[in-house]
Write a protein that binds this DNA or RNA. Structure first.
Lengths: 216, 216
DNA sequence: CTGGTTGTGTGACCATGTCACTGACAAATT
DNA sequence: AATTTGTCAGTGACATGGTCACACAACCAG
């Protein structure tokens, strides 16, 4: 039994037979910054993240990007599933945000498992459902929620215990689907209100309660 | 064998056993305007549209709405699948845009079919995949494409042979995720350019080529 | 015909996205 | 140590888009 199966959160519940079928696959280690796929690439297998984090972005023709979702260990990239089931090529871009370890299940084995293993099916369906949910959430945010609110949410979400957010303005802008300048201006306003302090490359939250009171 | 199974595009390819299991269900006729579900409703079954059209909207807190997708005969509402598989309640609203005929497959039977019938599984997966794709398309439009372009697209898409679009400004606004006033203004501009003429309740395209030249 | 309802037009105003820069800072190189 | 290069952040000007508050016109039912 390959080590990665034990470490693949969500898969340890798999039936014996499926585990055996997966046992022949080896996991790959890839470095931070590695692009797993780009728009237009053909889908060749089902990507499962074992360790690290992969972010999936949608890119507009202007070059602006928006974060669709992050893939954590034990999760899969739905784009992949989409391609395998719907015969569509990728329309988004996936980038390793940390060093990562992934397993790629080739299309034939994937389809085979899907047909033969109820637990695997459940795993795939649930992944699918939760991604769709989260993409709808992104859509809701972009379509209906003001930048300030989205910005505050992402700041709170990404801050560590001491309230430090280690992100550039550009990264935050991408995460919430707006332009860098807009983030800069908003952050400056939040700074003036005494809620955050700014330095190159990171933002320090100085009044978390104050920020929380500004969102829904 | 119930009549609706013959008329359910996409399901006639189903295996015999599944058809038998479905045969006990009756289709429902519902009138235009009927709300199939609202945000927060619990998901009780898998909804399959046999005839007519159902539109699914996402509603923001401001009351503004955006069209996620339309469900045509033979298609299903993914929201439903999402709820059945992910245990989430509905987050969108589905409204019958015409008189409709639908079949509701109760959750237990749905799960049963999913486990036992490969064709049914394929059907569900493909529906799922294509919806996800289309929702990503909506997100892309809303996040990156200007209103004028989206408006022209929807006009061309909804015009009949003679170039008539039978929609109110509000309906168009909802379809592309903007406000009615914005549509009114844009249409007026298009009118001034001699590309369309406006009347209460519909828009007549007078220069299709001209419109087409304005989009990507 | 008349009052209610629905669809449209408009001005004002703020929020956001884009463009074109400037300057600040840091790491790598002379 | 000085210089170059690349990344980050700040800023003004401007166009587009979203919201609010109305006015008004067209339609429908009684």
């Amino acid at each position: 039994m390959k080590d990665w199966i034990h470490r693949a959160i969500g898969l340890e519940a798999l039936d014996r037979q499926s585990q055996d079928q997966l046992a022949s696959l080896n996991s790959l280690n890839l470095p931070l910054g590695k692009v797993l796929f780009r728009p237009g690439d053909e889908v060749t297998g089902f990507v499962l993240v074992i360790a690290g984090r992969v972010d999936v972005y949608l890119t507009g023709h202007t070059g602006r990007e928006i974060l669709l979702y992050s893939v954590s260990p034990g999760e899969t990239c739905v784009q992949t599933t989409l391609g395998l089931l719907g015969e569509e090529d990728y329309s988004a871009e996936a980038v390793a945000e940390t060093d990562i370890e992934v397993v790629i299940i080739p299309k034939p084995l994937f389809l085979d498992l899907l047909a033969s293993s109820a637990p695997f099916r459940t795993f795939v369906f649930h992944a699918f459902a939760s991604r769709l949910q989260s993409i709808m959430h992104v859509l809701e945010q972009v379509a209906f929620i003001k930048v300030e609110e989205r910005l505050i949410s992402i700041l709170l979400e990404r801050s560590d215990e001491s309230g430090l957010v280690h992100n550039t303005h550009q990264e935050l802008a991408t995460a919430i689907g707006t332009a860098r300048e807009v983030v800069s201006r908003r952050l400056e306003l939040l700074g003036r209100k005494g809620l955050v302090t700014l330095e190159r490359g990171n933002i320090q939250i100085t009044n978390q309660a104050g920020l929380e009171s500004l969102i829904s």
